[in-house]
Amino acid sequence: MSLLQVENISHTYRSSNRLWRSGSLTTVLSHVSFEIERGQCLGLLGSSGAGKSTLGKVILGLEQPRQGRIIFQGHDLYYADTRAARQLRRDLQVVFQDCYSSVNPRMSAEQIIAEPLNNYEKLTRDEGKRRVGELLEAVGLKADDMRKYPHAFSGGQLQRINIARAIALKPKLIVLDEAVSSLDMVNQTRILSLLSELKATFGLSYLFITHDIKAAHVISDSLAVMDKGQIVEHCRDKSGLADSAHPAVRELFASVLPEHPRDRGLGRESAIKQ
């Protein structure tokens, strides 16, 4: 059985009522289905407004879809009883793009990372400190950093803290919603390799949401492309995506920037395919 089954999800947003006119409906997701296996990473690609983040929210249980089911570890996420739901939420974590707004600026790194631990596990003070220290080291920071507050960290470091918080409870699936997009290239590569290592070490699964085909290609096992609320291409083997003929996929490839100035402008597509 797959870790996560997304079954025929459709969702609409209603724009707010304006004076006497009633709001109009916008379809953001229509009949989306896919699965994520244990220990696998699915890269979800698409341009702005394709519905990637809404799908991420639906999978996290933050936005109940109009239609369809999310089956996580054999339970329907939106209709699980309280006890099961509590366990499911533990196994499902998230890292967002904006690392600064993901943390409370008045909490120290220790408090931030300890929060999920305190919610689920009864730990003594010393044990908690030790666990936080271990987690900080697992994401490449120093155990001493736990006393610092968010403003004292750079974006890359803060994103590591968000990752440490996400892996604190040894979850099964982490939704990474543009988790590296706001970082500079050096930090992006570092965080990507950290995520790959953590995935191997803890047997994690990821849903990696991004518009950056290069980053998705580095970390993912399989790739899916969304366009206008639908999955238009799903390749179990990530290298197969380059052969897709769908216009949305072609556009993604066509807008990849060159790795060397000699590949400027046209002829870019052929440069990628090799």
């Binding site: 290239m185 050096v186 992006q188 590569t189 570092r190 990507l192 290592e197 950056d212 990628i272 090799q274």
Partner: peptide
């Protein structure tokens, strides 16, 4: 040189070099 290496590319990369960046 470090900046140039620290780029995700579409070509497959060996895991060893990834660890170096980490």
């Amino acid at each position: 040189k470090q900046l140039l290496q620290a780029r995700p590319t579409l070509k497959a990369r060996e895991p060893e070099s990834l660890k170096e960046y980490a």
